[in-house]
Structures are given as C-alpha cells and as structure tokens.
Nucleic acid binder design. Structure first.
Lengths: 241, 241
DNA sequence: ACAAAAGTGTTTGGAGTACACCCATGA
DNA sequence: TCATGGGTGTACTCCAAACACTTTTGT
C-alpha cells in the first residue's frame, strides 16, 4: 500500500505506558536518534503513530502497543487530546516526521492514551531502529522529549493517579499475577505519594472481596516470607468499587 | 479568506452545553433542516465546528460557544475524543457538511467538550438559519440526532456527573448568582439521581466556606421565603475541595 | 385557616487513623 | 544470633445517614 493513502496526516495517537518494577513507576519510551549535520541529536518519544485512514482511535492505540511491544490485552484508556498548533512546529520534529511518513505534515492533533502493563511481560523489540526502554518516571522530567510529550506524560500521570484512586483494582494491572500485600502497598504509596500504615493497609486489602489469599508464600527472601495473593476479577461486582 | 484554507477538514470540536431550569437538566442543540427531494429532513445537532487551520482545541470550543451564543467566560472542559470512522459515513451528514464547508470531507475526529451555563443568560440567536434551543436531557434520548451526537451527549453527561461529584463547586456554574439551598439540592439530586435528606443537605452546604448566606430572602413565593446564598469563589481554597 | 415549602438537632454505625510488639527466615 | 521485613488488635475520631416537628408566608 502506498504511504500516501495509508495515514491520516492530521491525527495521531500517543500512548503513555506505565509499569512498576517493585520500587518505582516507569514509563516506556522510544529512543530517537536524528542525524544533524555532523552530529547525532538524541532524545526520547512516546510510542505513537498517525491514525490510519479508516482506523478508530482505540484501535490505533491497540495497534501501536502491539506493533511496538508484541503485547495484547493491555489496559488502555483515552485521557486527553492535545491540539496546540505549536506542538508540531519544531523543525526537528517536522523533518523527522516527514522522513518517517513520507508525507507533508501540517499540524497534528494527538489523542493521548494511558496503558498499564506488568513490567515482567517481555517486550519484544521490533526490527526497526528504534529502541524501546523503561525509564524512571522521576528521571523523565529531566530528559529531552520530542514534541509536547513531556506535557502528555504529565497529564497521563495525573489521569492514572485519578483512575487508580476511584478504581483501585487497576493496581493489579501493574503487579505480577501473584503479589504480596507489601508490593501492593508500595505501589499504592508510590502512585499517591503517601505513606500508608502497614496494619491499616493490610486490613483494607483483606476486606476487598476481589483480593484472594493463596496457600503460597514468597520464596528465597532473606526474611520471613510473605503470603501471596491474587486478583479475582469476577469478584469485582461484590464490592462497592 | 478562502474556505479552502480556513478549516482543518479532519478535526472538529463539539460542545455539550448543560443548563438547569430549576427542575430539569437541559442541553443546548441546533436545529438542522435538510431539504431532500420533496421533503425536509429535520434533526438536531450539537454546536460544533471544524478546527481552524492553526487553532488550539480549547480555543475552538470557546469560539464555537461565542459564535453561537454570544457568551464568554463559560466553564468548559474537554472530556473525550471520538474517532469511529463510521461516525462520518452517513451520506446525509456528509452532504450537509460538504454543503456547509465547501470542502471535501473524508472522515472527522471530533473532540468533545462539556460546558455549564446559567440558563438565564440570554442566548443571542445569530443570523444564520440555525436555531439554538434548550431541550430536556431526558427527551434527547428519543430525538433524531446528527452524526454520533447521541453518544457524545451520553459521554458528556457521565463526565459532568463525575466532575460535579469531585468538584461540587461546579454546581454554581448552573445556578443563578443568588440561589436557595433548595435549588442547589434539587440540582444536586437531579444530576446524581438521588434523594438527599433536607436536613443533612442543609448542614453540609452551610459548612462549605465558599457558600455565603445573604441578608436577603426570596420574593413573591406562596410560602415561607427561603434565604438566598451566593458562591464565593475566593473561599474555595479554605476547604478540602 | 389552610396549603406549601423553609428551617432546625440528635443519635447511630461504619470508616479511617494512630499506634507497638512478636514472628519467621536466610545469611 | 542478627538483620530484615511479615503479620497482627484496639481505641478514638469524624462523617454520613436516619429521622419529625414547628415556622413563615400567600391565598
């Protein structure tokens, strides 16, 4: 298929993909290396793409994640659209875009999605020249980012904080299938920037009908092994949440 | 300016404008009359427009509301974007669009905004052939609507319910400058589809530092006159909200 | 005088918060 | 045996919810 007909050159989708490594929140970013005169310019960008000509927004987000990571069945949620005309006026970004797409680019409105993924899921690096890596969310503030991707990440973070507050079962999208209550607590405290009381947290979690204790303990930890729990989606309806 | 250069034919903004008449939630819709063969086809649509070529999304929403109603300083909030390719495939909608814009229309992604306005603010009907009217939100479900505007209204309603829950001071965007606690309660109960206890509601409202009792009563009511209150925006910071 | 809505306090249950010690495991 | 984190119960506070009668005003 001819590139001319494949993409809609006015609308794109960008995905802010969050992960959790047990200590810190991470974001998935593409390396971007641009040859300029005699130097390489290097920065990072969100996984994203122009819409295909007859593609729905949600489908585009699913496609992007699948193309880049090989993963399917990822929690995805649209959170905001960005249409500042200046967002696609940096000559470096324009050149890069026109080079990638072989299209004349005027200005692009982008629709932001957040995704939550279990960081242990192996990301299948694809055979293009872009490298996809996890970065500490804290460090991202200090990185060079393409377009307005710093702003998109910030808004995505606020959105996911908000969502994790009103739908706490979304935490389980970020944890391994079997997890300890400590892991859940550290994740919770990291996201909401609080320090929960261990006993109160334990109490609250064990009251949730959708958190099920397993007959299984952690292994090979240099201290008393913690009990493992799992998330039971079908019990979600049993709670107010 | 030539139409060819004025609009971005791929992205639009639609506004779901809510009002409250003291009893019911209302939505602002444009009449749309289309001459077809020997009959007139009649339906309703949200106030909306294609983006201008170098216009930000928020600016487009502000422009649309100002063009249609003459109003400024309206509470506006982006809530969701709609990009189903089928949303602009109805031949009637395409013809109407191409007729209005004089542009070739392929498919349009639209960004939805909600607005809250005091229904008493006089809406200045403009000199085009479209009539703008308030409709009961309940009745809208049974009306013929252009494009996917029924879906957009539904999502907008959910968004505004959610927002009014976490930022209850937004209720004052819908009430007159001076209001009674009953008016606020009826609005609250309408939006959230509950029946609040009168005493508990009174207690809660009078505790809000940003709701100020006035030395003034209702007039010409066939029963005991209620005290009037006003909203004091600068006291917002004094509460947790 | 009557119809209609305004205004007002107390009690109860549940949820959140604060707080300190013993237990199990690997090194 | 020690270092590390796991696991547990009680008391207090605060907020939400339930509940009924008297007051004011226009007709």
């Amino acid at each position: 298929m001819n590139q001319e007909t494949k993409y809609n050159p006015y609308v794109s989708v960008d995905c802010v993909v969050f992960g959790f490594d047990g200590e810190k929140l991470k974001v998935l970013l593409n390396e971007r290396n641009i040859k300029e005169k005699h130097e390489w310019y290097n920065d990072k960008k969100l996984p994203g793409s122009l819409l295909l000509k007859d593609e729905d927004l949600d489908d585009a987000a699913i496609r992007i994640l699948n193309e880049r990571t090989g993963l399917k069945n990822i929690y995805l949620s649209q959170f905001h659209s960005f249409g500042n005309p200046q967002r696609t006026k940096n000559p470096r970004d324009i050149l890069w875009l026109e080079n990638m797409t072989k299209l004349k680019i005027e200005r692009i409105v982008t629709v932001g999605y957040v995704a939550l993924i279990k960081i242990k899921r192996k990301i299948q690096v694809l055979a293009d020249n872009t490298e996809l890596n996890w970065y500490d969310l804290k460090d991202v503030k200090r990185m060079r980012l393409a377009f307005d991707h710093a702003e998109i990440i910030q808004k995505g973070l606020e959105h996911i904080r908000h969502n994790l507050n009103i739908e706490p079962y979304l935490f389980f999208e970020l944890l391994p299938r079997k997890f300890t209550i400590s892991q859940l607590r550290i994740l919770h405290d990291t996201v909401h920037q609080v320090h929960s009381d261990v006993r109160n947290f334990q109490k609250k979690v064990t009251q949730m009908p959708y958190v099920i204790a397993l007959d299984e303990l952690e292994k090979k930890v240099p201290h008393r092994a913690a009990r493992l729990y799992k998330f039971e989606r079908k019990n979600l309806g049993m709670s107010k949440m």
